[in-house]
Design a protein around this nucleic acid. Structure first.
Length: 180
DNA sequence: CGGATTTGACCCGCGC
DNA sequence: GCGCGGGTCAAATCCG
């Protein structure tokens, strides 16, 4: 089963080995963020912030360090509207034949991009529910094409549409690569 | 016919 | 300032 510490470790591992993106990752409140985890982690809200792959500042530790919008950090006016607030993110790996994991939500693909050092493209999905701007990325690793990395960003503001029984499978497929 | 996917262009932050 | 790399848009297309 998956414990928060395992997820945490997985997250760190992923961040170290893969360059998934350029942002901080943090584990969202799973209870309302990721229904699939409801069964396995229904306790405390779990937040942890990590540095990303490259440099950038390292926000170690698991306290919600909310850097606040310090006045010095001149956030420019968001032209397009849209809150650019940092969103909870977390990633995990599964060993799967299919790229699209059925997690109970409906996703609309809105982009696909090739990333460097990877032969497989990365796909971008958005939750189709109106007003729910949760996104996820799916990418298969070139070093081991049996592995699919899924990165979620945001918290769903609505329940799942269909029951996510399949998610138990996904959970059971989760692998923590602490050692190769 | 309506919603999802495809796919190149566009955009934007960052590093040189 | 410019180019690169990653993320998003959106029109055309696909597909049930």
């Amino acid at each position: 089963m998956s414990s928060p510490s395992m997820l945490k470790k997985a997250l760190m591992t992923i961040n170290k080995q893969e360059d998934i993106s350029t942002k901080n990752y943090l584990l969202p409140n799973f209870t309302n963020g990721f229904p699939g985890f409801r069964e396995s982690i229904n306790t405390t809200t779990y937040t942890a912030k990590y540095a990303m792959v490259g440099k950038k500042k390292v926000m170690e530790g698991g306290n919600e360090e909310e850097e606040k919008n310090s006045s010095s950090v001149g956030k420019k006016k968001k032209k397009k509207g849209e809150k650019k607030a940092k969103r909870p993110r977390f990633a995990f790996q599964t060993r799967s034949q299919v790229d699209i994991l059925d997690d109970g939500y409906r996703w609309r693909k809105y982009g696909q991009k090739a990333v460097k050092h990877n032969k497989f493209p990365r796909s971008y999905y958005r939750c189709t529910h109106q007003g729910c701007n949760v996104k996820k990325q799916v990418q298969r690793l070139s070093k081991d094409e049996g592995i699919v990395v899924t990165t979620y960003e945001g918290i769903h503001t609505h329940p799942t549409e269909k029951n996510s029984d399949n998610f138990e499978q996904i959970l059971s497929q989760m692998r923590i690569y602490t050692r190769s």
